[in-house]
Write a protein that binds this DNA or RNA. Structure first.
Length: 270
DNA sequence: CATCGGACCTGTTAGC
DNA sequence: TGCTAACAGGTCCGAT
């Protein structure tokens, strides 16, 4: 489900009620996530006060003394604030009881997400090989151009490679390539520098606009307070196969690249 | 190295 | 109405 804008939206929704709160209890109802939830995580979190919540790529880091909970939402994970009296729902696998009385619940039907422990001062192996954040200075056209030379794989797959740049998932890769006018099937090594210039810009603007809109709610994404995101109404190509291009009215096409559905306008994207 | 396919899971929907 | 197959916002890992 979540790409960078949805994770950032989640982070912003958690921040006001989570930072400064002490964790009174941490219930693991189902430890079988992508990797088993380690017992150490429970020991490390209970009794601690949350000092910050950060995001790196699509991971959330909940900081306490001694380290951080490293949280990934996978395809179907979500975090939600509940009152103590709200009943647990199906797939509510974890719950943090805050001393304020709020309950932070982690729901994840497919269990592709993870909750792990990262000791202070260490970088978890999952984070160690990630490329730059899209809003950082390290992400620019030169990087895209340099790293793509000789690459035969589709530029869409290249853009979704977290070693190149983090946070661009299936929705926003299609959307960015539409805005840049680049055919998603084009070999990454056959995209010129000037076009990567445009791509780097629109990756930032599309992600930024999506964050401003609270993310994209296609089926079930909700913010921690229960409200949907509104970026779905701004999508130009994603999930619009057969519909008219908003720019030229040509029917949007769907193709599969790297086993993922990809959408583009055959007229606007070359 | 780059690239590909399979793996991990459950829920929803389209199609017969 | 019921069954089945395809598909879903991620990404790691092993084989080639």
């Amino acid at each position: 489900m979540p790409e960078l804008p949805e994770v950032e939206t989640t982070r912003r929704g958690l921040e006001p009620h989570l930072v400064g709160a002490r964790i009174a209890a941490f219930d693991v109802r189902e430890a079988r996530l992508r990797w088993p939830v380690p017992a150490e995580l429970v020991e490390r979190l209970v009794g601690q006060r949350v000092s910050a919540i950060r995001r790196r790529s699509k991971y959330l880091l909940i900081d306490v003394d001694g380290g951080s909970a490293l949280v990934h939402l996978g395809m179907s994970g979500s975090l939600r604030f509940d009152a103590q009296t709200d009943p647990r729902r199906t797939h509510d696998h974890l719950q943090l009881h805050l001393e304020t009385g709020l309950l932070l619940r982690y729901n994840d039907p497919r269990r592709f997400g993870c909750w792990l422990w990262q000791p202070a001062g260490e970088t978890h192996p999952l984070l160690s090989r990630l490329g730059p954040e899209p809003f950082s200075e390290d992400f620019d056209a030169n990087r895209l151009w340099r790293l793509s030379r000789g690459r035969q794989s589709a530029v869409k797959n290249f853009l979704m490679d977290p070693a190149i740049v983090v946070g661009v998932g299936n929705i926003y890769a299609s959307e960015a390539l539409f805005r840049a006018g680049i055919d998603p099937r084009r070999a990454a090594g056959r995209v010129a520098l000037a076009r990567y210039q445009r791509l780097a810009e629109v990756v930032r603007t599309v992600l930024g606009e999506a964050i401003d809109q609270g993310g994209t709610t296609l089926r079930d994404f909700l913010r921690p307070q229960g409200t949907p995101g509104y970026f779905a109404q701004s999508l130009n190509v994603y999930d619009r196969a057969g519909a008219a291009c908003r720019r030229c009215a040509t029917p949007i096409r769907r193709v599969v690249l790297g086993q993922r559905a990809s959408f583009y306008c055959p007229q606007c994207q070359r």
